[in-house]
């Protein structure tokens, strides 16, 4: 047990020593890994922020029901009682044609709009807030509202929501795809640096093999090196993403102020940073494992 710990400690120390032995080469490798990793990490952050914006959109899940022009007060109250029996409605609000016209004239800056027009062209309307933003449910709700009497038009944001959801789904898919492609690239970067290291330490491997080193003993320092290199690369990626968000922050801030939105740009959380670092070291480890395995097999073949 103690010997095992000693071996691992030695492997870790030798990995650090190897990194420091060639500082420039190490730095460039770390930058390459870091930049590659910062792409999916940045895209992930972008998606997370987009999801946050979508979640904060107030008008996203409203359905507006316009009544026919000849609908009277009786029809309105009938509609209201029918509305109470439809499931999936969180809130509903009646906007009379007069209220709508007043709001419109206020918005347009024409105070006597009502008196200018021969008659009020706006219909009575209901603004309905559904209890869910799920597109299929929204569609169903809109369909059932359409069947009610004296309803002229049902306008729902379901398409909007659908498009946004589809866009986000596409974004997430792209993130996964990008992450997979870059994982393969990183495995080969790691494998390649390890392969170069093995070439420079070939004598040591051969001699160790001859005096009774197990495959595990020979593999260990390289695996540690791969994992360490991956993790440091992950650290570089985290730094890159953090600097990028810090650069964007003032622009986002002035933009959100224009929209009076409480939105704040989100950076990577502790968990996400951990996942980034661990994932990066796992990828480095895999690259190292593949490279060392191949080299060991070659040594076995040519003693």
């Amino acid at each position: 047990m103690k010997a095992w710990l000693t071996h691992h400690r030695q492997a870790l120390i030798s990995s650090f020593a190897q990194l420091l032995k060639t500082p420039f080469a190490s730095l460039f490798t770390l930058l390459a890994i870091g930049v590659s990793l910062s792409l999916p990490a940045g895209l992930y952050l972008l998606l997370q922020n987009m999801t946050q914006i979508v979640g904060a959109l107030p008008a996203q899940t409203e359905i507006t029901v316009f009544m026919q022009n000849d609908a009277g007060a009786g029809d309105i109250s009938a509609f209201k009682s029918r509305l109470a029996h439809i499931a999936g409605i969180r809130d509903s609000r009646f906007v009379s044609r007069n209220t709508a016209l007043a709001a419109l004239s206020l918005q347009m800056g024409i105070p006597d709009l009502a008196s200018e027009l021969p008659e009020n062209p706006l219909p009575d309307a209901w603004v309905i807030v559904p209890s869910t933003a799920e597109p299929a449910t929204l569609k169903q709700l809109a369909a059932s509202l359409r069947t009610l009497p004296k309803v002229a038009l049902v306008q729902s944001d379901e398409q909007w929501a659908q498009r946004l959801q589809a866009l986000l789904a596409l974004g997430r898919y792209m993130f996964t795809l990008l992450a997979c492609i870059l994982a393969v690239a990183l495995i080969s970067i790691s494998g390649n640096t390890i392969r170069l290291q093995i070439l420079t330490r070939f004598d040591e491997i051969e001699v160790s093999r001859l005096i009774g080193a197990t495959s595990g003993y020979i593999r260990r320092p390289f695996l540690y090196f791969g994992a360490l290199q991956g993790m440091l690369g992950g650290l570089v990626a985290w730094l890159a993403v953090t600097i990028a968000t810090m650069q964007l922050e003032p622009y986002i801030h002035s933009l959100t102020q224009l929209y009076a939105s409480p939105f704040r740009l989100r950076t990577l959380s502790i968990e996400e940073i951990m996942i980034l670092l661990l994932g990066a070291s796992a990828i480095g480890w895999v690259g190292a494992y593949l490279a060392v395995g191949r080299t060991l097999a070659q040594i076995e073949k040519s003693p």
């Binding site: 004598d203 001699v207 005096i211 009774g212 197990t214």
Partner: peptide, 19 residues
């Protein structure tokens, strides 16, 4: 490896590590 730990190997070209 465990067999080799019980064998001392001496080579003509020494196979020393020069680093």
């Amino acid at each position: 490896p465990y067999l080799r730990r019980n064998i001392g190997l001496i080579f003509q070209d020494h196979k020393l590590l020069f680093d």
